[in-house]
Write a protein that binds this DNA or RNA. Structure first.
Lengths: 377, 377
DNA sequence: TTGTAGGCGTTATCAG
DNA sequence: CTGATAACGCCTACAA
């Protein structure tokens, strides 16, 4: 029969090959102690002979859990493909044939980003790495998924895992609505709330406070502007604490923050040029994220403004690229790896008991001021 | 009944809620065209109300494919955790409780690696990123797994995916033996062979040739030593071509290469110190990988040897850390992202037809000489 | 210690 | 267009 040859071998095939029942096959893999050494050997040998690997799908179905932890990010492609041609995910994508020929020349690899730190690793990547690392220590595979907006991908991923961590996004609330309520969830960088989801986030206020204190107290700057839109929890918190901290020092923030976002259109460059033309550049630019700060650095450089002599610039997050910019970026670093690990531990149920009087975790990590040169130090 | 409340909702629950059969529920999600708009709406509404998400396990079981692509690395923990306490994966790990308190202080995060490029991103990470990126474009989730030696983790992962890409390892051959033969596999950086696995690799010889030519022809170095053990396909190929290229220039390689490996004990530092003591340091050190080269840089620096004035050093791979070292590392960069993407496309069946007369893909990518300062430029 | 049988949640087939 | 019903491959009482 062509069956056994072509099909993926199953417990039945192995059982037959080994001359035992399917239960023994199953036991051989999952309950070694409940079976005699002899039959176990026989089963394993048969399995190897047949090239048998238990189907995770079937197992997942049978015992109600997949054993996998998931990590989902929205619009990851958009975020990453920035410098290139952005094409949205398309499952039905035409085959992009591998270039023919013996050796595929560099020019066909479109790998122009020579380890470009502006594109990788970013915040998401470091958190993801922590998540993956912890999962590996826990001996669990990780599923990574990405999808946007109205996409069903979050729900789809939710159906594959025992627990899911999710990066922030404007469309997150909508996505959460169509997620099964039964699966444990960790939300990164999302405002605390009454929902049943765990949180892992950073103490934005504390970080911003330390930064402003440094700029105002140590450097004596008296005209500190904010760069970045109030979009998302992190950025908003940073902006609010920027204002609060300035107020604490008896300073008034600029009327309107400088517009900027990492994705999509903004007016950062024009606004900066405009301010320069009017001789009204702030003494310091506190940016919502490192990516904003790096853009500001570029813009200022294009305008011939010297950093930090004329204008100081600071970031937030502490991504690697900030170490490489000129001048090196003063920033507030998040313990991204630790945050990713925490999420994984929470989902795996290895994060200890939920704190007294709380229904879920809300892990707030302290960031750390990273003083480099762009602040004037 | 407590059933419907606690359990994860299934098609049956939705069907009941919507007053249709389970087939209609399934169709509502998978075959929208084969069902009336009205019932479809009704089903979707019911599903949302119940917080229903289809179980990927059940679907995978039913139609024989999971829709996931996998990427497996051996001993990833060991490779990564280098500077820290290395603890092997242990699924039964004791809970590491999240630190208590309002805000988790930095000191408890053990996140000392301030975006340390020596630890991340490495070769694996960039390939992995390419793999993930391509999967996202294809609309497919990725599962990442890691495990060592006699571990069943490769086979386990194989049971979860429709296709699996695997990083090289000394234990790879053994692991492949207990893998189901039915699932498509891509091997990174492994010697071509008769097995049914696809290959994605780099043209080590071409890269090394260009590098040696530069060192010998452009710089006129006449005493070029190799650093690194002949372990694994890449390193061995590099070593072999190092010798061949030198021979082509009429030079003789040193008797024995300088011992070094990224993991495990080696004698690189002692050997270097020894050579220095004897006044026999080579003029140039061609290292098997960037990580070897970075170690060599450290060692030479400790010995007070100036690079590149006294000894030139080169790497291979082109990881980000090489851009940050002092002096910046001359290296041969692999198009890692492109390699990761290629692997994903092959597994997804979107890499076009297998070349004439071949039974599987063997994609060999051209690397690119990255001239920085450590060679003397 | 080993075998038998039922169930896990979907999809697909085939009637209606 | 909709509804029964039979796989799909594995796990696990329960029985032998």
């Amino acid at each position: 029969m062509t069956d056994a040859a072509s099909r993926r071998p199953t417990v039945y095939d192995v059982a037959q090959e080994a001359g035992v029942s399917i239960a023994s096959v199953s036991f051989a893999f999952r309950r070694p102690e409940r079976i005699s050494e002899a039959t176990r050997e026989r089963v394993l040998a048969a399995a190897r002979r047949l090239g048998y690997a238990p189907s995770a799908a079937a197992r997942g179905l049978a015992n109600g859990r997949t054993g996998i932890l998931g990590l989902h990010a929205f619009d990851l492609m958009l975020e990453r493909a920035e410098p290139r041609d952005v094409s949205p995910p398309r499952p039905d994508a035409r085959p992009t044939p591998l270039p023919a020929g013996d050796i595929i020349p560099w020019s066909l690899t479109d790998d122009e980003t020579l380890a470009d730190p502006r594109a990788f690793p970013l915040y998401v990547d470091e958190v993801q790495r922590g998540f993956a690392l912890e999962c590996w220590m826990l001996g669990r595979p990780v599923v990574l998924s990405s999808g946007s907006d109205s996409d069903v991908s979050v729900a789809d991923t939710a159906g594959r895992v025992d627990g899911l961590a999710i990066f922030p996004s404007p469309v997150l609330p909508a996505a959460l609505l169509r997620m099964p309520a039964t699966i444990p969830t960790v939300l990164f960088s999302v405002a605390p709330g009454d929902d049943p989801h765990h949180r892992v986030r950073v103490d934005n206020a504390g970080g911003m406070r330390g930064l402003i204190d440094h700029l105002v107290h140590d450097h004596g700057y008296d005209d500190v502007a904010f760069v970045g839109r109030q979009e998302g929890f992190d950025n908003t918190q940073r902006f609010l604490e920027y204002r609060a901290s300035l107020a604490r020092w008896g300073q008034r923030p600029r009327e309107e923050p400088i517009d900027g976002t990492v994705r999509g259109p903004h007016r950062m460059v024009e606004q900066l040029a405009d301010l320069q033309a009017r001789g009204a550049l702030p003494r310091a630019l506190v940016c919502a994220t490192d990516q904003h700060a790096l853009m500001a650095l570029d813009a200022l450089s294009a305008l011939g403004v010297r950093v930090p002599e004329q204008v100081a610039v600071t970031g937030f997050d502490g991504i690697l690229a900030g170490r490489l910019s000129v001048p090196a970026l003063t920033s507030v670093r998040q313990p991204m790896e630790a945050m990713g690990r925490a999420a994984a531990r929470i989902l795996a149920g290895k994060a200890g008991p939920v704190p007294e009087g709380q229904s879920r975790f809300d892990a707030v990590f302290a960031p750390r001021l990273l003083i480099r040169h762009s602040c004037g130090c």
